[in-house]
Nucleic acid binder design. Sequence first.
DNA 1: AACAGGATGTATAGCGTTTCAATATTAGTA
DNA 2: TACTAATATTGAAACGCTATACATCCTGTT
Lengths: 345, 345
Amino acid sequence: MKKITIEDVAKRSGVSKGTVSAVINAKNTVKPATRNHILEVMKELNFRPKGVARNLKNGNQDKTIGIIIKDLTYPFYTAIVSGARDYATNKGYSVIVSSSDDNHEREKYFSHLFSTKDIKGVIIAPVVEGAAEIEHLFRLKMINYPFVLLEDVKGIQANVVTIDNIKAIKRAVKYLISTGHTKIVHFAGPSSSSHTQERIEGFRYAFSESPLVFHNDMIVSIGSHFDESYVKTIEYFKEKQRSDYPTAIVCFNDLQALAVMMALKELQICVPEDISVVGNDDIFYAKIYPIPLTTINAPQHEIGRRAAEILITNIESPSLLPNEHVILETEFVVRESSRVLIGKK
Amino acid sequence: MKKITIEDVAKRSGVSKGTVSAVINAKNTVKPATRNHILEVMKELNFRPKGVARNLKNGNQDKTIGIIIKDLTYPFYTAIVSGARDYATNKGYSVIVSSSDDNHEREKYFSHLFSTKDIKGVIIAPVVEGAAEIEHLFRLKMINYPFVLLEDVKGIQANVVTIDNIKAIKRAVKYLISTGHTKIVHFAGPSSSSHTQERIEGFRYAFSESPLVFHNDMIVSIGSHFDESYVKTIEYFKEKQRSDYPTAIVCFNDLQALAVMMALKELQICVPEDISVVGNDDIFYAKIYPIPLTTINAPQHEIGRRAAEILITNIESPSLLPNEHVILETEFVVRESSRVLIGKK
DNA sequence: AACAGGATGTATAGCGTTTCAATATTAGTA
DNA sequence: TACTAATATTGAAACGCTATACATCCTGTT
């Protein structure tokens, strides 16, 4: 079935392309009768003008940027988008979002899509499993397409706005140690995520600077999905004597922490009296939990803001700018899901 | 500063446009030396190939649809997007999202953007304040651009997938009445939202079919933002004697309900012992709350799925399809934030 | 009946790529 | 060296629309 063009409509209506174009663009230079007739023909042929061709003539006016996140339903990412949106709006840009769902192919698809649709630039939370493929990023560089990464990607020089996960976790663990916790475990994330490894490292690293010694069984593989985390947590405790329970759990992220707390409630283990729970990310919904979560705050809004700033600066600069590499500070936020076991503040 | 085209690059590099194009598209038909030279020139000129023109030639291959929601950070909407995404993925389509932030202009902008970028179709959660402007929707119709609305919009015939808010609220209120609640109030949403009015109506309507009588002061204007709702809730109760407290609050949505519960906790009013709280929407985070929220489940995933289904069917149909109008069933879900006061189940 | 002048409509030239057949260059071989 | 078979490169023709300048049709006036 062949494509219908404005020409077909013109021919069929017995007018010229120009007239059809005028109708499409709601010019008032066309007589109602003609107009209606053309409209009917358009309907009849189910003619859909190709946007591409329309833009060609005018050049591409609209100012919009894209952002590719990993999970649209995780508030951490949507908060970053909000930050980017606020800055962008201020500069007259709009933002469109897509989710790679932690899938490399999709990330590639979307980065190509955006660059090819004349979206002015893109912010990417890159999927970096194992040997990351990065051709698509090289491609963006080649065509001088402005982009900003929200995580370092080995092998490529680019604009990056990120946080120091290792340092952040280390700090949290050292806090627990300093407040008298001796049996601390880390509930690790999905093995596919690069964050998982980083966070394990940070956790482990904390012990090297403390009197406590690290054991491999302090790392428990849990995952990040809610249901999965809930189930694994229950299992974990079911297999343990009460005397072997940890005094504190450092979670992979806040969503997991929420699942853990739900499981603990089910098991009638009190937070923070029996066990302290520490999250990571500081998402909105963990903050408003009845037992507000002690967690590591990543400045989500600021991450988005800065990324958008760098991106738009690049878009608007006529010449190539040097890459920026920004590492934002995290903040350890003590709330009510953790407990101090000894005097030390 | 004039636009740089492939021609400029060609001229400057002393080759033809075709060769430059080959470099851009990573064809391996270009001698490395030539290739490198061209790459340098591209960098020097900061040449960014215009996607528009590329698509022109190729036709528009990619299968992607758009969705315009009102709030990217509200899980209700992202769940809808997930539903649409699942269906679309299955059909080989990708989804890009943007948020109108309840702003009419943005909705217009994005609908125009998508249609003009040859995104194949769009799902819109329309902003329908007061006298809704709907020209942009008419425009979509005119150019036979496939779209699906997630809410009825007066004055336009279109594909719609939605739920019956009025009925849903009515049902919830009748439940409360039947379980012995006599002092029920509705915490209404922002006056700008069309949902606010609907929900008030549903609330009111429930009384007409019960022995209780409706009073205007049963409607309390609270809003939907978390902080705002929290503050207003505190104020509401501060001004009241304990004996005048309602026995149940029907909230505008789940986020508001969460804010209300936080305020009640602050005021040391127990949920559900002292007061029952009923939400609306059934967002994920209210379900996993330690006091799981009694609420009205809107089948978010299904809404997205159905909308995507209708959209894609329209996209792929060579001829115009008649409009669909789908009203999905809501379900009243009793959990732990509400209490039965008398025997009746 | 002729004509000004606005309302309608037409024809054509781009817009910036990609494509592809034709041509040029190079490497490899006898 | 001459010739063939690859390998590189060229340049003109699309792609489907919009804009622009120009032609035509009316209308009502003189």
